[in-house]
Design a protein around this nucleic acid. Structure first.
Lengths: 148, 148
DNA sequence: CTAGATGCAAACAGTTTGCGTCACT
DNA sequence: AGTGACGCAAACTGTTTGCATCTAG
């Protein structure tokens, strides 16, 4: 009941995001809405192709990125462009800028104790809980304002 | 005071991890210990090179991966090999297998309400909090036992 | 008519791998 | 001597980009 017709919605969403409405874009969006889980660009491409066989992977990438920037989609976890490692030190979490990808540590006490309630899939052995506080850093927020 | 001499330690750690002790490995480890933050392989490489100019990037990668597998290091966030997107649905978090990288959703209620206490860097505008419950899924835990 | 979307192929960045050589135990 | 580490270069994967063409408004 909380799901409005995607089709109608998308025209509206596009307008709000300042994205011209195109057929490809709409099909990609509808396809995404029908993909539960955490699809990769290739998976989206494969599914979209069933409706638009001539579409190119580049178009899928370009639109996924536009959707991400517009907030219509989220990435499961912010990708930093390369592997980032850290030494097993005292417990902490991360502050991540979704725009410039900068990472800072915050003390685990700033989040407080965490606990998983209820059932996890049988046999899953928890190693650690990691919290990402995702947002825009000061520099990126001000850029955003300026750029418009 | 909680920091034992890295040098002595590493011989011990290596043995426990079943990794033959080599000079390169030790230098990489010591370098990492002296790098706060979230270095990328290239950054580690650059720094290690100051002590071992002839070292190759591949060696750094190989050893970072060995350290990760041995648990001497952590990745800041589990990398899934490709971009993963998801639709802005109701609030949830993720269960991530650190070995096979499989992602499952868990309801946000299984973690409970989160709140950031204390100061964040000035101007940081929080968009969302994302919790990853990182561990080994049933399949990977059993493989691990078997493989030894 | 014009801004912007698309397709293609080439370019890229990051990472891994195969293999010959070298070092430690 | 043998196991495994290292260096090099090539291979690979995922992603982006430049450019010519097409399309919606």
């Amino acid at each position: 009941m909380s799901r409005p017709q995607p089709t109608t919605d998308f025209a509206e969403l596009s307008r709000r995001a300042g994205l011209p409405l195109t057929h490809h874009r709409q099909v990609i969006y509808e396809t995404l809405m029908a993909m539960p889980g955490h699809p990769s660009p290739e998976e989206v491409y494969a599914k979209v192709r069933r409706r638009i066989p001539a579409i190119s992977l580049a178009t899928v990438y370009k639109n996924l990125n536009r959707f991400l920037k517009a907030g219509l989609l989220q990435e499961v976890s912010v990708h930093h462009g390369s592997l980032r490692v850290e030494v097993n030190d005292h417990p902490h979490h991360h502050l991540v800028c979704s725009s410039c990808k900068k990472i800072e540590d915050i003390d685990s006490e700033q989040i407080g104790p965490l606990q998983v309630r209820g059932r996890l899939p049988k046999g899953f052995a928890v190693q650690r809980l990691s919290v990402d506080v995702i947002g825009l850093c000061a520099r990126c927020s001000s850029k955003k304002k300026a750029s418009h």
